[in-house]
């Protein structure tokens, strides 16, 4: 059984069909890329998995469980963490605090205990863990910095670190290298691969940057107009005539 199964997923916004009977599956341990021109429905897939919208039709199953029965905040409890295209960091918190929000559901102390200050040990342990993760990313010195004042590329790494703090099984990355230069993109690619191996994760990512997709994805799913137009190994999908055609209109932008 695949880790994530999407079946016949259909979504409409007003009169516009964003997804049209989309089906695909993500096997455990893989890094899977979701590509397609702008407006193909990639982010919509993520937002449906995050339960921000209710689909018009179809099913999403994660480890066999029906995701559509969950509320948005319950998705993470099942082991699905995500990042956002335009960053979902909390701008007025420090880097460390942002990472600690990633640990939110792992705290054992209840509200009364927290008010009475009884959750300190747990808090210290998580803080140490977050600091360790930041150190490994080379971001240790920034732990006290307020996120709003940090450069964009750095924030992308912090958001990914926060997602890792949630101890996910599946990581959804929405354009992890958007706005990054070539060096940063390469670093991010290596980082994604490394955490996949170390944490035993599965990664589903949406990306326009083909160098990243070709570099790290083991399988690629191409969408256009809310439908799957190709699926397979990166090189195969890249050569697929339907994919090339879909991107033709975008050629100018890609170049």
């Amino acid at each position: 059984m695949a880790l994530l199964e999407v079946e016949e997923l259909t979504m409409r916004f007003g009169g516009v069909k964003a997804l049209d009977g989309l089906s695909f599956a993500v096997e455990e341990g893989q890094i899977v890329g979701l590509i397609g021109p702008n407006g193909a429905g990639k982010t919509t897939v993520f937002n449906l998995i995050s339960r921000f919208y209710d689909p018009v039709g179809g099913r999403i199953r994660f480890r066999g469980e029906d995701l559509l029965r969950l509320k948005p905040h319950q998705v993470l409890e099942r082991g699905i963490a995500r990042t956002f295209q335009n960053l979902g960091l909390f701008p007025y918190m420090t880097v460390l605090e942002n990472l600690l929000v990633g640990r939110h559901i792992h705290y054992k102390a209840g509200p009364w205990a927290l008010a009475l200050g009884l959750g300190r040990r747990e808090e210290r342990a998580f803080r140490a863990e977050a600091e360790g993760l930041l150190d490994r990313l080379g971001l240790g010195p920034l732990k006290g910095a307020v996120v709003a004042f940090l450069p964009y590329g750095t924030r992308k790494f912090i958001e990914l670190a926060r997602a890792l703090m949630t101890r996910p099984k599946l990581l959804l990355l929405d354009e992890p290298v958007a706005g990054m230069n070539a060096t940063e993109t390469q670093m991010m690619g290596e980082f994604i691969k490394r955490v996949r191996d170390e944490y035993g994760l599965t990664v589903l990512l949406v990306e326009h940057d083909m160098s990243l997709v070709m570099g790290i994805c083991e399988r690629v799913i191409a969408l256009n107009f809310g439908r799957k137009i190709a699926e397979g190994a990166p090189e195969e999908v890249q050569r697929d005539p339907a994919v090339i055609e879909a991107y033709l209109g975008e050629e100018v932008r890609v170049a």
Partner: peptide, 22 residues
């Protein structure tokens, strides 16, 4: 505590906060 952080998280980024399990 995590409660205060959850308040701020929901205030500034409702969707991201929910995606963090809040």
């Amino acid at each position: 505590s995590k409660m205060g952080r959850a308040f701020i998280a929901l205030r500034d980024q409702e969707r991201a906060a929910q995606a963090c399990g809040i």
